[in-house]
Amino acid sequence: MPDFAFLWQTLEKLVAGLPLLFQLVSISLAAGFVLAVPVALMRLSPVPPLRWIASSYVFLFRGTPLLVQIFLIYYGLSQFVEIRGSALWPFLRQPYWCAILALTLNTGAYGAEIIRGGIQSVPWGQVEAARVCGMSGLLLLRRIILPIALRQALPAYSSEMILMVKATSLASTITLLELTGIAHKIISETYRAIEVFVVAGAIYLLINFLLTRAMLALEYWLSPHLRDAPAAARAQESAALVH
C-alpha cells in the first residue's frame, strides 16, 4: 500500500522548486534563441572569420557535457583574480546566474545548428523570387528567410526545449534547489528513492507533455498552408469554378 501522506508531502516540497525550474528554462531558452539566430547566420556567412568563430563555438559547446560547462563557469572562473575583481563578479558569484549562463550558451549552440538546418531548407526559388522583387539583406531575412526557416525548425526546436527542461536538473549540482535538487535532498534524508522518484518523474513528464502539446499547437497554427482548406472555402472555390 503506498504511503499517500508521504507522497503528498513530497509533492508539496517538490512543487516549491517549480518556480526556479521555470525561470531557468524560460530565461535560458529565450536568451539562447536570441544567441542562436545570429550564430546560425554567422555559420552560413560568406565571411570566413565569422564562420570560424561560430563553428568553434558550436563545436565547443556541443562536444562537451553540460556539467563541464556549468562547473567551468561556476567553479572555474573564480580561479582568475581579474574576474573576481570585475564588475561581473556579483553575477558570476551566484549559482543562479552561472546556471543561466551555462544553459544559455549550451542551448544557443544546439539551437544555432537547428536554425541553420531550417535556413538551409528554405527553397532557393523563394529567395530568388524575393531578390527579383528587390529585397535584399535584412528585409529578405526578415520577410522571407527567417519566417520559413523558423517554421521549418520548430519540431527540432521543441525537442531542444524538452532537453532544456531536463538539463535544468544539472543546476542542482551547483547547489540550486530546483526539482531534482529537492528530490535529491528528500531521498538522502529519507532513503525512499522510489517514491520520491515517482513523484518527481511525474512532474517532469507532465511539464514535457504540456510543452509538447503547446509546440504542436503552435506548429499547427503556423502551417495553415499544409492543411486541407476548410469545407466552406472549398465549396466556394468549386462554385467559382462552375460559374
Binding site: I162, K166, A167, T168, S169, L170, S172, T173, T180, A183, H184, I187, S188, Y191, A193, I194, F197, A200, G201, Y204, L205, N208, F209
Partner: peptide, 22 residues
C-alpha cells in the same frame, strides 16, 4: 521510451544510486 526520454538522467541516476541497493 516516453518516461525515460521525458525525465532528467540525473534523476534516474539518483534513483538507482539510492534505490538500486534495496
Amino acid at each position: 521510451t516516453t518516461v525515460l526520454r521525458g525525465i532528467p538522467e540525473l534523476l534516474v541516476i539518483y534513483l538507482l544510486f539510492f534505490g538500486g541497493g534495496g
